[in-house]
Amino acid sequence: MNCEEFRSKLGEFVRGELGEAERAEMEEHLRVCPDCRAEYEREIRIEELLSGVERVTPPQGLRFEILKEINRLERKRKRLRPLVRLASAFAMIFILLVSYLWLRRPAPAELEAAAFQVDLLSPRDKEVYLPDEVKVVAALYPERDYRYRIYLDGEDVTSESKHIDGTILLEPEGLDEGYHRVLVEIEDRESGSSAEIDRVFYCMGGG
C-alpha cells in the first residue's frame, strides 16, 4: 500500500469501517510510514473532537412558542372558514360560468365569418308583399366597424337607409308591381373581409 491509497481510506479506517484485510494493510503501512502515522494521529484527533461536540439544548420556551403559534393559526382558520366557504362557492360559480361561455364560444373560423355577417330579416326570399309592407331590415354585429351598401334592383339606395345600433332599415316607396331584388353588401373595415346577401320578392299592385 502506498501513501496515496492509505490517505484515501484513512477516514474509513479511523471510523472502523474497513474489512479485515484492508485494515491489516493500513496498519502495516502505519508501522512503516511516519508521515502517514502523523496524518493518522491528526485524523484521530479530529474524529475525537467532532464526536465530542455535545448537543446544544434548545431554548426552554421553544415548544410553547410553537404550540402557541399553531393555536393562533387554528383559531384564525376557524374564524375564516365561513368566509372561505363563501369565497369557494363564488369561485365555483365563476368557473362554471366561464366554462359555459368558453364551451359556447364560436370556433375561430365561425367567429371571423360572424364578424361581417349580415342577417336580412326582411324581406323574405320569394315572398309577396303589399307595397307599404316592404321593409328592408338587416341586423349587423354592432361592435364591429363596417361599411355597407344596399342595392334595390341594382340601384344604390344606401343613402336612403338608416343605421341605428347595428340595424339597417330601408323603407322603399313607390315600388312597381312585379319582382324586385334587394342586395346588402357588407365589408369589415378591420379585416377587409366582405359578405353579401340578396333576396327576391314580389310586390303587389302599384304604389
Binding site: 448537543r55 446544544v56 434548545p58 431554548p59 421553544l62 415548544r63 412558542e65 410553537i66 403559534e69 399553531i70
Partner: peptide
Amino acid sequence: YEERIFNLIYWKIGDYEEAKDLTQDVFI
C-alpha cells in the same frame, strides 16, 4: 425531533436566537 432539528439548524447557522426562530418556522 425538537432538539435534533434545533441542533441541525444551530450548527448550520451558528446563531442560537436565529436557530430558535427557524426551528419554530420548521415545525409550523
